[in-house]
């Protein structure tokens, strides 16, 4: 009996795993060797140069700004996303009737815009609309504010999803817990801190991990809206990798940088998700 159910466990994961290997693992392994070569992306042949690309990457001065930018993106983006999505979820969760359902719809519509489209739309808005409305200069042309401007775009585009996840988590919290707390005299703040937050941990795991790693990988929106400018103040690591792979004809180097980047992200992602998973309270 036990053997049969053991088998089933493996059978369940098999189809997903097959697709996964096909689309990700196999290409990844196929591409790894390039990082150890001097391939420029065009020639037929290349020579193996051992770890040179990696040592170059660690000493590369041009990579410092992208790293700083990326970290800044991740910080602003994750904090912003968590606060805004949670805020929206709490707001919509109130019993405000039909308006709440309309609100949910409206907060989710921006998610239907693709990253590229969002970038074009907001480029237009920052350039023309804000200029007319608020008479301010284009935020995307301001080196100090450009990352903030792009984060705002991204939040508009993605908070709808996380709002749904938090909403789903909020609905899963049994109402009697709040009742009990109210009877005990706890105010809104206290019940939020001691009931809502802990029971919302599974949602945090999902949202924070995904949000953080996705901002660290930031590429499409930035590429479309500023291309990394002005003078590199919004160039992210992904953008730098892309430039090396295809623009500067340094495919080997680009691949090496991305491998280091992936390792860093994997370590960070696992740490963060483990942090939250440990704090999850099972219902």
């Amino acid at each position: 009996m036990k053997r049969k159910s053991d088998w089933s466990a493996y059978v369940f994961i098999l189809p997903g795993f097959c697709f996964f290997c096909f689309a990700i693992m196999i290409p990844l392994v196929m591409g790894i060797n390039i990082a150890f070569t001097d391939w420029n992306g065009i020639t037929d042949t290349y020579t193996y140069i051992g770890l040179k690309n990696f040592t170059d990457a660690l000493q590369d001065q041009r990579i410092r700004q992208p790293i700083l930018n990326t970290l800044y993106f991740a910080l602003l983006g994750t904090a912003g996303n968590t606060m805004v999505s949670l805020g929206l979820a709490l707001l919509v969760n109130q019993k405000l009737g039909k308006i709440a359902s309309a609100a949910k719809m409206i907060f989710f519509i921006p998610v239907c815009f693709s990253a590229v489209l969002t970038a074009f739309l907001w480029k237009f808005i920052y350039r023309d609309v804000f200029g007319q409305l608020f008479h301010i200069k284009n935020l995307l042309g301001n080196a100090a504010l450009v990352i903030l401007a792009i984060v705002i775009m991204g939040l508009w585009n993605s908070c709808g999803i996380n709002m749904l996840v938090y909403l789903s988590g909020l609905k899963n919290i049994p109402g009697d817990l709040y009742e009990a707390a109210r009877i005990d005299g706890a105010g809104a703040f206290k019940s939020f801190r001691y009931i809502t937050l802990p029971l919302l941990m599974p949602s945090f795991t999902v949202c924070v991990t995904i949000s953080m790693t996705s901002w660290l990988k930031e590429f499409a929106t930035t590429m479309c809206s500023t291309g990394g400018g002005p003078y590199g103040s919004s160039r992210t690591v992904s953008l730098y990798i892309y430039e090396n792979l295809y623009d500067y004809s340094k495919a080997g180097y680009g691949q090496a940088v991305s491998m280091l980047f992936v390792i860093f992200l994997v370590v960070l992602g696992n740490l963060v998700s483990a942090f939250f998973r440990a704090r999850e309270v099972e219902a």
């Binding site: 660290l216 691949q255 991305s258 992602g269």
Partner: peptide, 17 residues
């Protein structure tokens, strides 16, 4: 493994794919 794979940017998979 699944969680880790979410960190992989698509550019590096492009040519092999």
């Amino acid at each position: 493994l699944y969680v880790s794979s979410l960190m992989i940017p698509f550019q590096i998979l492009m040519i092999p794919v």
